[in-house]
Design a protein around this nucleic acid. Structure first.
Length: 286
DNA sequence: TGCCAGGCATCTA
DNA sequence: TAGATGCATGGC
């Protein structure tokens, strides 16, 4: 255990489940159950013992400002009892949330989240983590603890897709460059996005080449703190993994379809833009 | 070796 | 407007 550390009540949070459920790709776990990661311009070592989180600066001391940042990042100031009560109004969703009650929806920096979920498309968590790591290490500024922050939009906007070839991001490279150029120019602006309703914010994000409804909703949920965007996404995924730990057998596609229907049932009530996706899935399940 | 991966844009009918 | 297809790469 590092000597200079701060503690925070975990309030029922499951640190490992939260960091590796597919909402962030910027964390690594070592053999001693220490988790190393970064968000924005901050790096951190964090570990959990029972219902207490231990937080340490990798190379110094956590300031009160740092601690406030991480408390917000881990959503420790959110009333999850109330949030769970809201989510579990749907019977099947209640099963998913109760299967992983310790998952918290992280409040990640907007820019980190946008890049991460552009990379995530048609991809898997292991490889996403690798590409994110190479992006930060190759073009980002070094942080304490051998961590690297995401390159700024301004820095990335100066590059070409060919410059990103060491990342092995494939066809996503051109999407990353377009995102950087639109954010750097102000065509897509975080402050404006925060002032818009969900539908308008989604439309603005979709101005970026390579950003569709799925990526936009992930950015809204994880990067802009909109907890009314498909909040069961992370729980549903983990619950399905528990039901099918060795992967989804083809014969179980029906069950997956049922679970999806519950997602879309909720989404239809809350997201007009989800109607098209819901209709598409309904056809696929026929 | 072939399939799959949390998507998206583009083309075609 | 819906369906089909290509896009890059790595894990299994």
């Amino acid at each position: 255990m590092l000597s200079a550390h701060a503690t925070l009540p975990a309030k029922g949070m499951d640190l490992a489940a939260t960091l590796f459920c597919g909402q962030t790709f910027s964390w690594h776990q070592n053999d001693d159950n220490y988790f190393y990661g970064m968000a924005g311009s901050r790096s951190l070592v964090v570990w959990q013992q029972e219902d207490t989180l231990f937080l340490a600066h990798p190379d110094g001391t956590l300031t009160p400002k740092d601690l406030a940042f991480w408390q917000h990042y881990f959503a420790l100031d959110t009333d999850y009892e109330a949030l769970h009560a809201k989510f579990t109004k749907h019977q099947k969703l209640a099963v998913c949330v109760s299967a992983f009650p310790g998952i918290r929806v992280l409040r990640q920096p907007f820019w980190d989240t946008l890049l991460s979920f552009i990379i995530s498309q048609n991809n898997n968590i292991s490889r996403i983590t690798g590409i994110v790591g190479r992006l930060c290490q190759t073009f980002g500024q070094q942080l304490p603890g051998a961590q690297y922050m995401f390159p700024s939009a301004q820095a990335l906007a100066q590059l070409t897709p060919e410059d990103l070839s060491p990342l092995r991001a494939g066809f996503r490279a051109k999407y990353l460059i377009d995102a950087a150029r639109k954010v750097a120019s102000g065509e897509v602006d975080e402050t404006r996005l925060r002032s818009l309703n969900n539908n308008d914010a989604r439309d603005e994000l979709k101005l970026i080449y390579g950003v569709g409804d799925k990526v936009a909703d992930c950015v809204l949920l994880f990067g802009l703190g909109r907890d009314d965007i498909a909040p069961m996404d992370v729980w549903m995924k983990r619950a399905m993994e528990q039901i099918f730990p060795k992967g989804m057998p083809k014969a179980a596609k029906g069950a997956e379809g049922i679970a999806q229907q519950y997602i879309f049932h909720w989404a239809r009530q809350n997201l007009p833009a989800a109607n098209a996706a819901a209709a598409k899935t309904k056809k696929q399940n026929k």
